[in-house]
Amino acid sequence: MNRTYLYCFNGIVKRDIFRFFQQRSRLLSALIRPLLWLVVFAAGFRAALGVSIMEPYGTYITYQQYIVPGLCCMIILFNGMQSSLSMVYDREMGSMKVLLMSPLPRPFLLCSKLVASALLSLLQVVIFLFFAQFVDVDIPLIGYITAIPAIFLIAFFLGSLGLMLSNLIKQLENFAGVMNFVIFPMFFLSSALYPLWKMKEASLWLYWLCQFNPFTACVELLRFALYGEIEPTALTTVLLVTITVSFFALMSFRPQHGRSGK
């Protein structure tokens, strides 16, 4: 990477991180949401939902412990969608034009934006995991290190997904609707809140939907990574969907939506 690219990459990442810290309410809501799930929701459900011994856990675990990877992925999902929302906003408000005035290739500029978003996700997850320790969530030290590449990969995938969605959306108002149709189905139809064998007992077709949901692969990838392990099927799935989705996101990018020649 020559210096021109390096300066550009640095500039985009620094700007997005700086803006994130300027928006304190965004940081706060990014943390409060999963912490509420962890403290309130998990407390209510731990009695109702027993989690038997399963991989990668070597023993019985609490429900809090079980949902931590799912909540981490929820943070990443929300952040990915929020970054894309800000791209729709930038496109409507005109600041996207500034980015596109760069002489560097557009795929590089968009990838830099995705990396910046992934770094922000990583930061939020680390802060969440720090607080999670105080509610009896026990993660081995090595898990914090092995989780980093997993979080980054998941964040890149979900950021690309958001970017692809933002390309399909013409107006800011429509984005909220699409987010509801994406975030909630992805999250609830996954292993984030309950093991899939529980879902299989309840409904076989829902179980298969959960199995084919790439978000399930994200949750499982992170669940194993937090214990220093690799889940090969989840890793392969996340890698494949990341490559596919980011390719389509970059290819379908339109600087000005609905503004093309005849």
């Binding site: 021109t4 300066y7 550009c8 500039g11 620094k14 005035m101 760069s102 002489p103």
Partner: peptide, 8 residues
């Protein structure tokens, strides 16, 4: 500085 960075 951000704009300059975009210009490399």
């Amino acid at each position: 500085v951000y704009y300059a960075a975009l210009q490399g």
